[in-house]
Nucleic acid binder design. Structure first.
Lengths: 196, 196, 196, 196
DNA sequence: GATGAATGAGCTTTCATTCAT
DNA sequence: GATGAATGAAAGCTCATTCAT
């Protein structure tokens, strides 16, 4: 069995269990059982319960960043780039519902209980948006008075809140892709230079 | 001593303690000490620890709804109404920082640990936005193809994410009011009918 | 129930359990069961497992010191004082066998695992001997070249080792009092000025 | 690599680790690391953790016995023999500080956690003293009324306690040899027949 | 109503020991 | 013989909740 095998099995089990019960209600033994390893084995790969969450967070956000950057590589239109980002973000939910729920939780909780933890991976992820906006402003597509730092947060927040609703609702009205497009549409209209 | 007196003291203490430590790390005895009552006294007013959080959430959101509805009463321009909503939402952070932090956490957590809890108060709060959008569409101010149900989530998400950032950052670049205006500006441009 | 009641019950239970199993093999639940309280109750009176041992040690040594000082109060002959000290020390074993065993263990162990703990109570106890020796030297009873600081350690060590043997052996040859007298005899002869 | 090689490496490592942390706080992995072998290897040479301690104890005491018997071989004066024994005992501290600390601990603890263990090696070691005393009584050097079985314990106890102090104190007042001599002096005076 | 001492279930983490390689 | 990853029982400690006063 490869070394990374157990590590990955535990991470995946943790995602499942954290998503189901939340971080605090999840027991180590739950994760161990889900991963089909002994409780003690978890501590060969992680320092403690928090460490599982943090590692998981950084690893998974890291993968997401790589993926979206790859998707954006061949696109130059900043309007289209926003759409690609949004659709990719929302479609994560379809592929990795549990992961998204854990990341959402973690995002609100981690800074509460681990003061010293600085969430650089997350910042890297949303900075993709401000980069797009900045580029759009330089190319004259986007209004100059719009603040990229505000847009990135607002755009992420809008997508995130929408995905939260989506994962909770039993029978969503729209597809995830439609939803992503609608939010993108609002932001595109919201920041684009009017051709009047 | 009025009955509500102890209840309120405990609620306020809970807001403080939950904001400081998070729900799970907060101890009942912390709240009791902060409220200057005995541990057991809390159980005369609340069924259990979760109940404090839920009650707190509903009570406080209720007050916020009342306040913002009052502010919107004399305004008819849907563009201005969005701004009023946004500014009021963000300014909560100034007046009740602890409360905002607790509400943000609770929003992401409660559905994890209390499956049966349906967050009707929160829905009522964001429905104010969809009402504004709907009204704006009827009056011809807003584009018909925009979905009010999407806008309400996106608008709330954008404001909420921005306020999360704000409460975390040591020295924010902009004032809360400016931030509210910038986000409102994006959404106003995003959904308004173009006068071309 | 008096506050001190539970504290004392736990201390006495701890003495019993520590003596039976040793500190490390003793479980908190053993002590709790012996004291007929809940496991958690112990933590209302002691900070942790070590704290039980330390508190116990200091409290009980404190009592022993008081007792022996009282016994020595009306005696002026330093030779007799040594005997009183020795007999009292050895007779502890009869009255409080468990306690003696715990103290003996603790004496060898505590300084190993709690580096910062300075055993002032114990020093106070053996300093009684060096005081006697010093007084005996001033009154011309004891040889000047004898070091009180060495005698106190040697005397205590001799008594302690003898009592260790005693508590282990199934059928001791001599009575405790006889043993105390024999050791005292050696030391008396060992340090007294010869009347030649 | 000779069989005994690993055995010895582990024993020496165990002495170091037990002295540093005490038996219960020492981990098998600590010993393994110190001995530069794998954890599992230890179990090829010892049955369990306790077995390491017991083996170590018997082996090392055995060596000490051999050494002191050799030193005493050519001496016939019982007074001098006591001094040789004392000086050798105390000087162990200089050469094998860790070992002495472990033996001291073990002496007080082993009978607590391994009921069936009878410490014959230790008895053999202190019986050297009672043999000296007995011989001294037969040759008329020592008082007849002194009990060899008491002297051996008292003498060992005095030396042991003194060495315990010595290994704890940062800056001892006297040299180990002086201390040994002082204690011997007290016992010599204590049991010798007076030439009056 | 108010108190806070007492409870004990529950959890994270440790570590001696095993065993497949 | 040697390894060290894996095991899982075990235990210290916490804290929501209760209830006698």
């Amino acid at each position: 069995m490869r070394v990374s095998d157990k590590h990955q099995k535990i991470t995946q089990a943790a995602v499942k269990v954290f998503a189901r019960k939340g971080f605090f209600n999840a027991r180590i033994s739950d994760i161990a059982k889900e991963a089909k390893v002994a409780d003690g084995t978890i501590y060969l790969y992680f320092n403690n319960k928090y460490d599982i969450l943090i590692s998981l967070f950084e690893d998974e956000i890291g993968k997401i960043i790589l993926k979206v950057k790859l998707l954006l590589e061949n696109e130059t239109d900043p309007l289209k780039m926003l759409e690609i980002y949004a659709i990719h973000h929302m479609s994560l939910l379809q592929d990795q519902k549990d992961l998204v729920e854990v990341l959402q939780m973690e995002l609100r909780q981690s800074n509460k209980f681990i003061k010293e933890y600085r969430n650089t991976k997350f910042i890297e992820y949303i900075d993709i948006v401000s980069d797009i906006v900045h580029k759009g402003q330089q190319s004259g597509h986007f209004r100059q008075e719009v603040m990229p730092g505000v847009v990135k947060r607002a755009f992420f927040g809008a997508l995130d809140e929408m995905s939260r609703l989506w994962s909770l609702s039993a029978k969503p009205k729209y597809t995830l892709e439609d939803t992503a497009r609608q939010i993108t549409d609002i932001f595109q209209h919201g920041i684009v230079v009017r051709n009047s």
